[in-house]
Amino acid sequence: MLDVENISTYYGNACALYDVSFSVTENEIVSIIGANGAGKSTLMKSVMGTVRPREGKIVYKGKDITHVQTHKIVKSGIVYVPEGRDVFTKLSVEDNLTMGAYSKPAKAKELNALHEEMYEMFPRLKERRKQMAGTLSGGEQQMLAIARGLMSKPDLIMFDEPSLGLAPIIVDEVFDRIQAINKRMGISVVLVEQNAFMALSISSRCYVLENGKVAMQGKSSELIDDETVKSAYLGM
């Protein structure tokens, strides 16, 4: 459903991505791993149009979205849960969720049902629904960012470092939910992670980014046994 074809993205003269291609098909989890500065976030931002690739093409559901405005890309069904969560700290949990549904006009009733669905999936958010998002813990903010992303009922959701700065027990919970989103809701997932082991264990395919280029790609089950991946990213 998403095809990124040979894109190159620059910040000024610095090349952040060079000739990168990757694709996501219906209903799968694709992971992208790589070290700091490998270009993982830039790749996500290029898809969302918050930075623009200088060369190449991005096609979503058969439509070229390379030069489409960000808010229209969101409307067409791609959601990006950014690194560092980026929740609206001065809005309540409830309002944050409501804003997640901004791109899909919904009646009050449907909106309520969506809220309840999210609270069922993330019970902690229900307890804190009236609280300002800025007062939540890191794990709760991550849950909120994920739930907010789901509010617009996307077809494809991209997570950028969802485990960053979280306690190991919370990391397990987050990955658990991501798998549930894919399996139960039938949403395709792109997972960008530094936690390579986690990413490889829940994804079906994986791309390894190195210095802005795709160094390796393949089935996650095969990459997890690959010697280079093992030594470089899994620390084995």
Partner: peptide
């Protein structure tokens, strides 16, 4: 809805555009 979008834009422009708000 417009007003809430204005509040979001004032708090975080990138996140606002990722919600589908035309900043």
């Amino acid at each position: 809805k417009i007003g809430k979008a204005m509040t979001c834009v004032s708090q975080n422009k990138t996140a606002a555009s990722l919600m589908g708000i035309n900043v």
